[in-house]
Amino acid sequence: MVIFRTHEVAKAAGVHENTIRQYEAQGFLSPVPRGTNGYREYSLLHLEQARLASLALRWPYLGNKQLLIDLVTSAVNGDPGMAMEYAYQYLAHVRVERTYAESAIEFLERWAAGHVLDVSAHPMRIQQAARHLNISIDMLRNWERNGLLTVPRDPNNHYRLYGSAEFGRLRVIRMLVQCGFSLMAILRMLEAFDSGKTSNLREALNVPVEDCGDINAIADNWLNKLVALEERAKRLIEQVGRLIELSQMQKPST
């Protein structure tokens, strides 16, 4: 049997050696025997389990991490069928989120093409506007503070007045926010729109994080991230399949 050292398993999984030790301590690897010299002796099975843990648990991931933890522990604890089921559940979750994001962009493109999204009988004050859109007043104020829209004011009392133009813009903002896009990404897109660039707004929403100077904004470049997460979900399924095949190969012949 081929024996691997910690640094070899770490390199194969694309993680630090300490991460492999953490995987072992957290039950993401089968028990690792030690040689007479006290060194850990990892098998090919451990190596593939480490690859699975790395694929499943590294940031970013979508939704509740517990599903991915359950996936890994099921594979390690002798229930690869359940692990495969979890892997397909995760793939479905990512695909649903991607569909939402794609739909939000189509909604945006319809608005950008000049289609009216809201026809209000008369301008509304902020309380009425919040009720009309079923969102909070604080949310409306926050979007305005972040530069996503400018609301005209009544010249007599200076109250904000939301009309059909503002409601159309707000519906686009709300849908994009609900589908995971960051306020910074939405702001970049709206700045492009306001400057007269009404086509290719999809690209404006998906500027890579390193190009916009905010490395902490996971929701920037959101659609592209969802595409990458879907590809990683498919790799998870393939990796669980490898573990199943390896377990079959290691079964004693009868």
Rank of each mutant, 00 (worst) to 15 (best):
A165N: 14
G163H: 07
S136P: 02
D214Q: 13
L187Q: 12
S195T: 07
A204D: 03
S195W: 05
A104I: 03
R110G: 14
L183G: 11
V116M: 04
H115R: 07
P208Q: 02
A112Y: 06
Q128T: 07
T198D: 03
F181D: 01
A129Q: 05
A217P: 00
V116R: 13
A130V: 00
A130D: 13
L190P: 06
L117M: 14
I105G: 12
F167I: 10
D118M: 02
V116T: 11
R125C: 07
S103I: 04
S136Q: 05
A204V: 04
M124F: 09
Q178S: 06
I186D: 09
T150L: 09
R171V: 06
L149C: 07
P208C: 03
M139K: 13
A192K: 10
V119M: 13
M175P: 01
D214T: 15
T198V: 08
I173D: 13
D211Q: 14
N206H: 03
G213H: 15
E191R: 11
H132Q: 14
H132V: 04
W222E: 00
A121C: 11
E203W: 11
V207W: 01
V207Q: 01
Y159D: 04
I173G: 13
R145V: 09
R153D: 08
R145L: 01
G147A: 03
A204F: 11
M184W: 06
H132K: 09
N134D: 10
G213R: 02
T198R: 03
M175N: 11
I105D: 13
L183Q: 12
I186H: 03
I105K: 02
I135C: 14
R174Q: 15
R171G: 14
G196F: 12
W143V: 02
S199E: 12
R174M: 03
N221E: 00
R171E: 08
L117A: 11
R174I: 10
A113L: 13
E109P: 04
A185T: 05
L201D: 07
P208W: 00
H132A: 11
V119S: 07
Q178M: 12
D211Y: 07
K225Q: 13
L161A: 11
D154K: 03
E210S: 02
R125D: 10
